[in-house]
């Protein structure tokens, strides 16, 4: 009984650990591709973000998030990410 309880407890721990994980950088960044193209290589009117340096990308996203830069849609989107996620996204694109 004791062993069973411990193992159930152990499973719960595992489950919460997985859920509390930082969102995977690739999953965060791939969502941007819907507008900016695969890996940020935009073929059309939306700005290309492939090739941007991580620091520049992070700075842009923070400006959008804080409404310091006018935009049509990026401010609405950037507000959905934490500071840590912004860095993760910027590093993901910057490291390509």
């Amino acid at each position: 009984m004791r062993a069973l309880l411990i193992s159930i407890f152990g499973m719960c721990m595992l489950a919460t650990a997985a859920a509390a994980d930082e969102t995977a950088p690739a999953n965060l960044a791939n969502a941007c591709a819907g507008c900016h193209g695969t890996d940020g290589k935009s073929p059309g009117q939306i700005p290309m973000i492939a090739g941007m340096a991580a620091a520049d990308l992070a700075a842009e996203l923070r400006q959008f998030k804080n409404d310091q830069k006018a935009a049509t849609v990026m401010n609405r989107i950037a507000k959905g990410y934490t500071e840590a996620e912004i860095d993760a996204i910027a590093n993901y694109f910057g490291g390509m």
Binding site: A33, G34, C35, H36, G37, T38, S42, P43, G44, Q45, I46, T72, V73
Partner: peptide, 12 residues
């Protein structure tokens, strides 16, 4: 940007 979105998502 709507046209840009269409170009991007179909290329994705």
């Amino acid at each position: 940007y709507a046209r840009g979105w269409y170009a991007s998502i179909t290329s994705d």
